[in-house]
Design a binder for these strands. Sequence first.
DNA 1: ATGCCGCGTGGGAGCGGTCCCACGGGTGGT
DNA 2: ACCACCCGTGGGACCGCTCCCACGCGGCAT
Lengths: 345, 345
Amino acid sequence: MSPAESRSSTAGTRRPTLNAVAARAGVGRGTVSRVINGSPKVSARSRAAVERAIAELGYVPNRAARSLATRRTDSVALVVPEAETRLFTEPYFSGIITGVSAGLADSGMQMLLVLPRDEKEYARLADYLSAQRVDGVLLMSVRSEDTLPDRLRELAVPTVLAGRRSREEPLRHVRCDNRGGARDAVRHLLGRGRAAVGTITGPLHMDAARDRLDGYRAALREAGAGEELVAHGDFTEGGGRAAMRELLRRHPALDAVFAASDVMASGAVLELRAAGRRVPDDVAVVGFDDSIVARHIDPPLTSVRQPLQKMGRAMASLLLDEIAGSGTGRHEVVLPTELIVRASA
Amino acid sequence: MSPAESRSSTAGTRRPTLNAVAARAGVGRGTVSRVINGSPKVSARSRAAVERAIAELGYVPNRAARSLATRRTDSVALVVPEAETRLFTEPYFSGIITGVSAGLADSGMQMLLVLPRDEKEYARLADYLSAQRVDGVLLMSVRSEDTLPDRLRELAVPTVLAGRRSREEPLRHVRCDNRGGARDAVRHLLGRGRAAVGTITGPLHMDAARDRLDGYRAALREAGAGEELVAHGDFTEGGGRAAMRELLRRHPALDAVFAASDVMASGAVLELRAAGRRVPDDVAVVGFDDSIVARHIDPPLTSVRQPLQKMGRAMASLLLDEIAGSGTGRHEVVLPTELIVRASA
DNA sequence: ATGCCGCGTGGGAGCGGTCCCACGGGTGGT
DNA sequence: ACCACCCGTGGGACCGCTCCCACGCGGCAT
């Protein structure tokens, strides 16, 4: 038999159905179905017969048929707006996705990766996803003004967000302790004897950026020391540079900076160097995210790491809870961060 | 109506079916189906009526039902071995995934992201995927000795690989011109007056690594100049350092290095610095991949960029061809690279 | 007129599961 | 001995779509 023949014959051969299994095992369809779904209402005898038949036939249930009958799809969508896919390169997405995948693995759920390319596609997503295509949705990087989550909520599509839009987020979500992480970072700087600690914030319409700023303030306050030295960035390297320049202009005596992201921190380092300041000798720098760049810029960056895998797992778990309808699940999960100390501070 | 009520009522309300559309439009089910599937055998009158009914009802076809009837799933799996997910952080995966997503978008295909966590899960994938779960498979980073592709082939599951296992790869695949890219890199070094150009290879059981080494050799040969200075790495930073150390030991006069990956190149830079050589003054360095680290290490790395998005699109396109059964599609697609010149060479 | 062709068209018969109802046979209580 | 009950079981009726066959009807050639 030539490869081609073997191929087509394999393709032509229909996979065994539940009916075939029933016939072979000498039982009814119902019984086979019960065995497959782990119902206890099956005698040991029938169960054994069915299991043997399944093994012999290499039977695998047809997802589409089951889905049609149960009105479930056993799959969830992971939505990452295209504007963010460049950030794929950050450990953030990769870590969370890996965690989600792990958290979903044992549930038999499939993970659909959805990357809307523009606003239009993103806007149509609610209809798309609610059209019995998925049992639940995981939304990455929602913006404060984003209404897709609300639409999904109206459509009763189980949804879990990575991060929250505001402090009154009505949807379930998972995030790291941005405030605590920032506070730890600033404490670290103060603990090393830095006196004038500035901060470069993210865009304040993002909750994470606000929380990190809060953490900075809290650390200063509890230390009872220091004026707040705040400049606003936008999570880009250029934004970090500009903010650093402004900080230096307004507060030339500054000797430490906490940037709300590594990318901004790397911009800050560039600017400091351009201004003739040494890092960390003259100015210590701490970032946030523990991204790739943190390890590779010079000097390596002290940074706040998020437990990304755990966050992903938590998202999966929250979503599975909601899909199962167990209203008991927690509404939000906040996971602690960890300060990774390197040479920059 | 409270939100809760609205929620449950929405959930309880079944979505309109094709039958409902037919009834509303005053036509038969067959006609609605034809309109949806773009059959030409429908009168303008019926078509208009159906389209209006669809719009009024907000009808969206049920995927499961269609899938059951057609024996297609309209979804493809994108498989990334877990061992590689850390590489998610490289632009490689993110770029290709984005490209695949774009290439699939207009076909109505869904993209299933499958991240097997260990060898066992990976091995079971063939059965899993062939059980009518997907219409096709995209395999990232297959190793030379990997047999999953062959199993998929036996099972007649349309498959496209990112990269090839060897020069006799029987499956369709997409890759960049590794040889040409490496050759360009070395030409660049030679063109800048470097005389003793070494290379740090990847693991030679990988086809891409072999091709890059070939490119290095070709460039030396065509220039008629220079001894081959080869050390072997393993695509890790540590491996790059070790290989660089060996090169320096064996060829102290070396004044340029082409590393088969940026990560190894960054290791090489560290080693060079440790050995008191300046980059690029004493030794110029070129990497491969144009990854994140290339932009962020000091000095910024000249590197060979792959057209990742295009590669992803090509993979999608090849797979769609194969699923459609148009045997006309090309067997392999090789896309050109681009040399990104930065400070390191 | 009559026949034939072909174009829309309606609807029956699946696709492969799940759900649930009804049924047979054993058990226990009166 | 009788009934009530429960447990395991078989199979009908869907789930919502596609496929395809058969049919009605108008236009054209005969």
